[in-house]
């Protein structure tokens, strides 16, 4: 089995909001501490686990400049067999259609049976790339997988549908799956793993390497500015000492009839 896993680096949200900076009227993302998108971690674990269990080969791909080698190396250290860095299609590196186009090139070149992506990226929150990729490849797509098995012939995918419901489905290869949190518990990156892959060269693949022609007639959405949402737009933020705040909140709850029922 061949499993391709698609990775994105995102700002480290664990380190506070320092990476979001108000510059004039807009908020800019200024970050030099990039980490693997949390959902992609589940995707890597799923890929490595499937290969450990059934044999075959796994590959991690990410699109971007040399900085993305960090997340690729992380995937290698976790046990992915190989990694490709894909050269971005153009300057508008964040456009989902362009990203999917590059990934399609990688998929058609490497020919995986399964592509796993994170369900969405924690920065954009879009969740578009995996589905667009599937649409372009004309492969089936299942989003928000919470379980993923191979029965020897088909994939058994458990995934979230609506209202706390999940469905179990059987789908043949090739297909695209997006990983929801809870799909697994990603393994730690071990020191031995980091060491093992430290000297590995990560090949860069450009459009020609992937036999890709540039995306034709694609109209992009125009990226305007970011801003902070109005804080506490609806909430009344209580002031005073904790004790005073508590008295006030009890009062509000009383007014709402919380204690009369």
């Amino acid at each position: 089995m061949k499993v391709m896993v698609c990775l994105k680096q995102v700002p480290d949200a664990g380190e506070g909001e320092a990476f979001l900076q108000q510059v004039g009227e807009e908020v800019q993302v200024a970050c030099d501490d990039w980490v693997l998108n949390e959902w992609d971690g589940f995707a890597v674990e799923a890929a490595v686990h499937l290969i450990e269990e059934h044999g075959g080969e796994s590959m991690a791909v990410s699109i971007g400049d040399e900085a993305v080698e960090g997340v690729l190396r992380r995937a290698l250290a976790m046990g992915v067999d190989q990694a490709w860095r894909l050269q971005p299609d153009s300057n508008s590196a964040d456009d989902s259609m362009r990203l999917a186009h590059s990934l399609m090139g990688a998929a058609l070149t490497w020919k995986p049976d399964l592509i796993i992506c994170g369900a969405m990226a924690s920065d954009s929150g879009n969740g578009l790339v995996p589905g667009i990729l599937a649409g372009k490849l004309q492969w089936p797509f299942v989003a928000l997988a919470t379980g993923l098995k191979w029965d020897g012939k088909s994939f058994l995918v458990r995934h979230e549908i609506h209202q706390g419901m999940e469905s179990l489905e059987k789908i043949g290869a090739p297909l695209v799956v997006s990983a929801q949190s809870g799909l697994n518990q990603p393994r730690y990156v071990s020191i031995r793993g980091i060491r093992r892959v430290a000297k590995r060269e990560i090949p860069m693949k450009n459009m020609a390497d992937l036999s890709l022609s540039p995306l034709q007639n694609h109209v992009e959405l125009v990226d305007l500015k970011r801003r902070f949402p109005p804080s506490g737009a609806h909430a009344e933020i209580l002031q005073g000492s904790p004790q005073e705040q508590i008295s006030q909140v009890i009062q509000r709850m009383r007014e709402q009839g919380v204690f009369t029922s």
Binding site: V35, G70, R73, R74, Y188, V189, I191, I194
Partner: peptide, 9 residues
């Protein structure tokens, strides 16, 4: 880079 990875790990 490698040291950063170690620190992160």
């Amino acid at each position: 880079k490698e040291q950063k990875e170690i620190q992160k790990a």
